[in-house]
Amino acid sequence: MSKILVTGGAGFIGSNLCEYLVNKGHCVICLDNFSTGHMENIAALMENHPCSFQLIEGDIRSFETCIKAASGVDYILHEAALGSIPRSINDPITTNDVNIGGFLNMLVAARDLKIKRFIFAASSSTYGDNKDLPKVENNIGKPMSPYALTKLVDELYADVFAKTYDMEFIGLRYFNVFGRRQDPNSMYAAVIPLFIKQYMSLKQPRINGDGSNSRDFTYIDNVIQMNELALITSNPHAINQIYNTACGERTTINQLASFIKGILIRYNPEISNINPIYGPNRTGDIPHSLASIEKAKKYLDYMPSYTFYKGLEETIKWYWNEYAKKKASIRYDNI
C-alpha cells in the first residue's frame, strides 16, 4: 500500500478521496487550510483511522508547508484550489496566488522529493470559448474567467515540469462534480447542492438565464474512479496526459431542476408546488459543456460507474438523510 498526500483533503472532492484511499488500505496525509474545506468532512477519518490518516493544517502558498506535507510520500493528489468562476472574478489576485502559486509550490515539492506521480485537478473551464461539442482534450479555446486561466496555466506548468525534470503527471479535467459533502451553504455554492437545499427548504431555486445552458454533471464516485486509475496505471502512453473526467452526458439546467424536484417529491410531496425562478446569465459562464471520454477509455480503461441520474439519486438521498439528522438533533437539543 502507498503513502498518498491529498491536498485540499478536507474539501468536498478531497475528503471523498481520503475516505476511499484509507478504506483501500493506503496511508493518507491530508493538507488543508480550511478556507473552503470543513473539519466535519474528515472527523470520522481522524477518529477511526489514527494510524493511517494524518491531518496537516497548512496552506499550499507556503513552500515549506508543501515540503513538510509531501515528505516521505509516494504520490500526490492535488485537489487544493480556490474554485468558482464568480469568486475568481470578484478576487482574481487570491485565485491566482492559490491556484498558480500554490500549484507551483506543490509541483516543485514533488520534483525535489522525487514523488512517483503528481495527479492534479484540472478543470473543464479550460475549454473557454471553444464551442465544439463534445469537448476533446487537445482542442481548447481562450479562458473566459480568471479561474479558467489559472487552471490552464497549471496544465502548462505540469507539462513543462514533465519535460524538464522527467516527472510523471496526470491532469484530470473535472466536469461539474457533484455528490455527498458538497457545501450548499457557501456563497459560491455549486448549482446541484444549492438547488437541493432550496427545494428541501421549500424555496424557489434561481436559474441563471433561460435554463437552456447545459453541463456534463459528474458524480463524485466517477471522479474517485478516475483518480484511482491515474494512480495505478502502468501504461506509458497514459502518463503526462490530460483527461476529461466526466459522464459524457449532457443535461440542461431546466432538466436538472426538474430531475431534482422529481426525486425530492418522493421524500416530501409539498415540493411539487415549488417552481424555479429565472434571472440573468452569469458572467464568465460557458453556455454548454459536454465531455468526450474516449481518451480516458482508451488509455485508462475508464468507464463511468454512475450515470448522471443515478448519481443524482444517491446525492439527494445523502442530503435528505443529513437534513433529517440535523432536524432530529435540533429537536433533541430543545427538549
Rank of each mutant, 00 (worst) to 15 (best):
Y278K: 05
F308A: 05
N23Y: 04
Y332V: 15
K297C: 03
Y147W: 06
C27S: 13
P269C: 12
L194I: 09
Y199W: 11
N227S: 11
T95Q: 06
L31R: 07
V108E: 10
L17V: 08
D301E: 12
R117F: 08
S272K: 05
R180I: 15
P184L: 00
D154Q: 14
T252Q: 10
D97P: 00
L133K: 00
Y278Q: 12
D132V: 00
D91K: 12
D59Q: 05
K298Y: 03
K295T: 03
I76D: 01
D74Y: 08
E314I: 02
E314P: 02
L45P: 00
M144G: 01
R215T: 09
I13D: 12
N99Y: 01
Y278E: 14
F175G: 03
S124M: 08
P86T: 11
D154Y: 00
N96W: 15
T150N: 06
I239L: 07
L231M: 14
R87D: 06
N208H: 15
K317H: 12
S123P: 00
K325L: 13
L149D: 00
Q54A: 13
F120Y: 12
V28W: 04
Y199N: 04
A122F: 07
L17R: 04
G248D: 01
I170L: 15
E137P: 01
M106I: 15
N254F: 05
Q255C: 10
I192K: 09
E249K: 01
H38N: 12
L312V: 02
K310T: 09
N185V: 07
Y199C: 05
Y188L: 14
K317Q: 12
K297P: 02
Q255D: 14
T36A: 14
A190C: 13
I13Y: 05
K116I: 00
M167F: 15
A148L: 07
I196S: 13
A291W: 02
S71A: 07
L77N: 02
N48V: 05
A43L: 05
